[in-house]
């Protein structure tokens, strides 16, 4: 039989937790905990990511995976060059047309480390060690070292933030085909590291291996950030829109270091 003292402890603890939650005190407590423990989490997450990588690699497939990663890296580099060239071409055209235009939206990047992952079949959110104190805010884009967009910030604490990855079923991102005349569609997450490019007008040419980039129509997400490659196009003549299955270019399983794109020049 539980002692009266035990019951009192249980009651007090439950009441305190419930009051904290109701009064909104959980967030300051969470931020305080994050501030105190953040240095330790970096060590733990470094260890966790290393062990996680080792667990992913079976001994017999280690060599094949290394080769595959090398080819993937090469492909990503090619895509970066391609997108950059197309963006430069377009930028050149735009600058010529608007010679006196001064951009009001300049961006800088803030490096961040992924400290934990909450990835299930439907949702995919990671926690990073940068928050409002570092300039992070809800809606900002997060990219890899190569410049591929990973997702957007959906929660910004003082010291940490949550980043919803593109494959999360709740993720929506305005996008376009690289080099097109800014006709956009929406990249929607479908879970299991897959995303769909939807609501694309029929007149836009979608081809396999075509590169999808951000449209730049969202306030905190600059344009021409590579999102992924088209791997399949779903087109029906009777529908007003076409859809495409895309494979995100950012290596979601191996995300360790990312950058937040923060509005405002250096």
């Amino acid at each position: 039989m539980p002692r009266p003292r035990t019951i009192a402890y249980i009651g007090i603890a439950l009441i305190v937790i419930a009051l904290f939650a109701l009064a909104g005190f959980i967030r300051p407590v969470r931020d305080f905990g994050a501030r105190v423990l953040l240095p330790i989490t970096r060590v733990f997450s470094g260890f966790g990511s290393a062990v996680g990588s080792a667990l992913r690699i079976d001994r017999t497939t280690r060599e094949a995976n290394a080769r595959s990663e090398e080819l993937e890296a090469r492909l990503r580099a090619q895509v970066v060059d391609y997108v950059r060239l197309r963006a430069l071409e377009e930028e050149n055209r735009a600058l010529r047309a608007q010679a006196k235009f001064i951009s009001e939206h300049e961006f800088r990047t803030v490096g961040a480390r992924v400290i934990s992952r909450s990835v299930s079949s439907q949702t995919a959110v990671v926690e990073i060690d940068r928050g409002k104190n570092d300039g992070a805010d809800i809606g900002q884009a997060v990219i890899t070292e190569d410049g591929f967009i990973v997702g957007k910030i959906v929660r910004a604490g003082d010291r940490t933030s949550s980043v919803m990855l593109l494959s999360d079923t709740r993720s929506r991102l305005a996008a376009t085909v690289v080099g097109s005349d800014r006709v956009t569609g929406i990249v929607e997450g479908r879970g299991n590291a897959v995303a769909h490019f939807t609501l694309v007008p029929q007149e836009v040419t979608l081809e396999k291996d075509g590169v999808i980039v951000t449209a730049g129509t969202e306030e905190k997400v600059p344009g021409d950030l590579p999102i992924g490659l088209v791997i399949d196009v779903e087109r029906k003549p009777t529908d007003p829109f076409q859809n495409a299955v895309i494979e995100p270019l950012a290596p979601v399983d191996r995300l360790r270091l990312v950058s937040i794109i923060v509005p405002g020049g250096n």
């Binding site: 423990l37 997450s45 966790g48 667990l55 992913r56 400290i115 399983d253």
Partner: peptide
């Protein structure tokens, strides 16, 4: 308990699949 919580959040969450 702090170490156990950190393990769950920052180490185990990196493991693939059922790991």
């Amino acid at each position: 308990a702090v170490l156990a919580g950190l393990w769950d959040a920052c180490v185990a969450s990196w493991f693939p699949g059922s790991w």
